[in-house]
Structure formats: structure tokens, C-alpha cells
């Protein structure tokens, strides 16, 4: 049997999710006695193909300037043909901004069952099963995919620990593919994140707020605690979405990755996309009303309580302490 992993790269770097998928792919390949293939599309990518060859039995490479930038329309055309030819039992694609743009329409066009955002997956007797999260990570689900000769799965980034590659895979350069015109979508440019006034990645102490802060009017409460502690205010995605704090304060997969000495999470439930950006903080203390909030899975200390009952007292007590010591 064949397995296929789509290598993801951007601005000269192979993205980590690629190695995570190849690690999982290798595990499944060994168990099912399959060959692990990976495919990379891009411009001047020979060096990347050589890196990938350490992680897969076979690297399929299309080195063509039309693939300099990701375009799901073009990728879909090429991958459809590759999947028809190689007939992999499983094609893995990252559940990333690229993967979510590509996988659903690819699966529909090929009529191959797709399961998205998998934390783990397994094939037994030709049957694909997967583990996913629901309700922002509060619930896990085990799923069966309808029996098929071929499956597609998108894999959540940052869940599988990538292992070192020690294979010597074969690199096969494929000829430039035919593209059916007109291509209705085109890449124009990247927009880099704006440099903000505060760099939360260099702060020792972060007081981070989430949905539990309820209202913009309550933000000064958390801000005062942050200041009193000599720290900086950070937040989870909903706070930026509401426009209450600027994007440079956001911690998580679409924001920044931080490792402060203290991360005080107030009213943050701890969805995976947030946790991935703060789980390596040295000391994590979380305050949340829900005892099952996933934030308590990464926090060292937890307080199940309304943050509005804790924060003012905490701020006062730290002020007192600082007065005494100064």
C-alpha cells in the first residue's frame, strides 16, 4: 500500500507540521507494511526534497515556478492526478491555513472521504479511525470513516512529536504538470504582521485575559494587576477579534508564542490554538469558572472561581506587599 503526505512550506521553510505528519506516516507505514511518499510543489526546492528524503521512502518533487506560492486551485489539480496515479490508502495534509483551503474541495472532487483536524489516526484492516476535538477542546471524539480504498485526513499541527529522520528516500522529479485554465484564483502578496508597541514575547510576567473578562470596560482591572506585578497584558483570540486589544497582544497559533516566568490566565478556557502558544511558560496559574476548562490541563495551579472575585484582591495584596518591601 501507499501513503502520501503533502509537504507544506512557506517563505523558504518546510513547516513543522510536515515532519509531524511524516512521523505519523512512518508509524502507519511500518504497521501496514506500506510505502511512505511525500510530495512537494514549489520553485527551487531541491534542497527541501533532500531534507524530506530523510523522512520518507519516496519524495515526489515538482520544481516549477508556477508553484512558487501556495494556491489551492493549482495544488488541487496536481494532487488529484497524483492521488489517482499513486492510489494512496491515506493522504495526509496539514490542518493549516493552506490545508483547510485545499483538502475539502480536493476530497469532494475525487469523492474520497475526508476527515479534518485529526489529533491522531489509525488504519486497521483498511478502516480509518481518528480522534478529534469538539467544542473548543472540551470534548474528544473517536470517529470511523466510511470504508474506502482511499482516504484524506488533515492533521492538527503541534500535536504529534516529530522524530528525526534517518531514511534515505528516493527523490523523483516529476515533469511540469498540465494546468487547466483559467485558474480563477491568484496569489498577490504576503502581508507581514505589524510591529506593535509591546513585545509580549520578551516579558517575564504576562497577565492574559480571555472571554471571561466579559466586557471591554473590565480590561483596566486586569491591566492594573499586570502593572502591579511589573508585567504586561496579553490575551487570547476572542479579545483581539472584538477589537479590545491589538493583535500584538495575542498568544496562540495565530498570534505569538511566549515563555514567560509567570503566565496568569484569567478567564481563558484553553483551546488548543491558545495553549500551543503558552504551554512552555515556566509557571502557569489559571483562573476559570469551569472546573473542566482545558486550561487546567496545562496550568501548574488552578483556581475555579470568578476572576472578578480574585483579581481586585490579588492586585491590592501585591500593592501592599510592594509597599512593605520598598
Amino acid at each position: 500500500m501507499e501513503l502520501l503526505v503533502l509537504a507544506e512550506h512557506r517563505r523558504g521553510e518546510i513547516r513543522e507540521v510536515t515532519f509531524e505528519m511524516l512521523t505519523k506516516g512512518r508509524e502507519i507505514a511500518q504497521k501496514t507494511n506500506s510505502r511512505l511518499n511525500t510530495i512537494i510543489l514549489g520553485k527551487n526546492i531541491r534542497d527541501k526534497a533532500e531534507v524530506l528524503a530523510r523522512y520518507a521512502d519516496r519524495v515526489l518533487m515538482i520544481d516549477d515556478e508556477r508553484f512558487e506560492f501556495f494556491n489551492s486551485d493549482l495544488y488541487q489539480q496536481v494532487l488529484s492526478n497524483i492521488i489517482r496515479e499513486v492510489k494512496p490508502i491515506l493522504t495526509m495534509i496539514g490542518h493549516t491555513s493552506y490545508g483547510v483551503d485545499l483538502a475539502p474541495s480536493l476530497a469532494v472532487s475525487l469523492n474520497i472521504p475526508l476527515i479534518t483536524d485529526c489529533l491522531d489516526l489509525d488504519i486497521q484492516d483498511g478502516q480509518l479511525t481518528a480522534v478529534r476535538q469538539m467544542y473548543g477542546g472540551k470534548i474528544y471524539a473517536r470517529l470511523n470513516v466510511r470504508k474506502s480504498e482511499s482516504y484524506i485526513a488533515t492533521i492538527r499541527q503541534g500535536v504529534i512529536t516529530a522524530s528525526e529522520g534517518n531514511l534515505k528516500g528516493e527523490i523523483i522529479e516529476l515533469p511540469p504538470p498540465d494546468i487547466v485554465e483559467p485558474v480563477k484564483k491568484k496569489f498577490i502578496e504576503y502581508v507581514l504582521p505589524k510591529i506593535g508597541e509591546v513585545d509580549i514575547t520578551s516579558a517575564d510576567i504576562l497577565v492574559a485575559i480571555g472571554r471571561g473578562i466579559k466586557d471591554q470596560a473590565n480590561i483596566p482591572l486586569a491591566e492594573e494587576l499586570a502593572k502591579t506585578l511589573g508585567g504586561v497584558l496579553a490575551c487570547s483570540r476572542p479579545i483581539v477579534d472584538k477589537g479590545w486589544l491589538p493583535p500584538d497582544r495575542q498568544v496562540g497559533s495565530s498570534g505569538k508564542t511566549v515563555k514567560p516566568k509567570l503566565y496568569l490566565a484569567l478567564g481563558i478556557s484553553g483551546a488548543f490554538q491558545h495553549v500551543i502558544g503558552m504551554k512552555n511558560s515556566q509557571l502557569i496559574i489559571a483562573v476559570n469558572k469551569d472546573p473542566n476548562a482545558p486550561i487546567f490541563n496545562v496550568a501548574h495551579y488552578g483556581v475555579v472561581e470568578d476572576l472578578f472575585k480574585i483579581v481586585p484582591i490579588l492586585t491590592e495584596k501585591i500593592k501592599e506587599l510592594k509597599k512593605k518591601t520598598s
Binding site: 472521504p113 475526508l114 476527515i115 479511525t129 469538539m134 477542546g137 472540551k138 470534548i139 474528544y140 471524539a141 473517536r142 470517529l143 470511523n144 470513516v145 466510511r146 502557569i284 489559571a286 473542566n292 482545558p294 487546567f296 490541563n297 496545562v298 496550568a299 501548574h300 495551579y301 488552578g302 483556581v303 475555579v304 472561581e305 472575585k309 480574585i310 484582591i313 490579588l314 495584596k317
Partner: peptide, 27 residues
Amino acid sequence: WIHVSEVYIPSIERRAEFIRGTPEEVA
């Protein structure tokens, strides 16, 4: 294409040590 066979509340990997008491004590 897909069927949920089971849902569950995840088992805890690194459960926080909970601080209990009045808000005063917790602070």
C-alpha cells in the same frame, strides 16, 4: 463519510493543583 463512534471528556495530562478557599485566601 464520517461517524462519531464515541465522545468523551479528555483524561487529564497535567492536572493543575487547585488552590481553594475564600478569594482572600486564594490571593
